[in-house]
Amino acid sequence: MGKALLTGYNALAYIFLLAPIAIVLVFSFSDGAGFAFPPSGFSLRWFRYLAGRDEFITAAVVSLQVAALASIGAVALGTPASLALARERFRGKGVVEAVLMGPLVLPGIILGIALLQYFTAIGLTRSFERLVLGHLVVCMPYAIRSISAGLYGIDPSLEEASRTLGASHWRTLRRVVLPQLRPGIAAAFLFSFITSFDNVVISIYLIGADTVTLPIRILNYIEWQFDPSIAAISTIVLVVTIGLVSAAEALTGVIRKTTM
């Protein structure tokens, strides 16, 4: 009796959780112009429509470029930061950690407005650079988290073994630590990429007239026009995100480890 109730509740709750995503997927393949349910037929017309719309293509290119650059930067900076945080003990580590991981807990809209004001003050006017730097700062903690998790998974005696075999700190880094850390670094890149690709609240302050990211383009579009082309572009965003998450998940099993 209690068990059936619980099962029923679960079914309803998961329908609630998935419904808004499912509806987007369904209408992206509809052939009508509205959102009357059920959709009148199957077609790819809205995807074809998108292919002809420059503002979506450019936004997608901007999003991908920003995400790629911010992720490369986040991994390049996050790897040494993780090596220090996960492997060394030093004074002031708490402060260093707070500064590096801070963007994770700070509401994005506040960092967004702070960066907008700061970039204007220092004369950094180009939106593309603004976006890359802003995203870099929010991606870095995610990169550090993934790479540190990878480092914690490497037996420290591997590094010690390398040292007893005659390798210096730097040689050990190159010959043992970095090769062992490859999955962690790949996961860090993917999670950074998702974080940047998904970002709305920092981007909204840093975009320029001709430099708009995809989520912001969708956001603006919703206010003007309400048709299944938004569903189609949303589907593309969903597929990209879920694809990246699955890849990162396959590499690390982080989520599995922490919640199972």
Partner: peptide, 12 residues
């Protein structure tokens, strides 16, 4: 739903 973009969720 955790990873779906907030704009996409609101739109849904």
């Amino acid at each position: 739903p955790f990873y779906a973009n907030v704009v996409v969720k609101v739109f849904g």
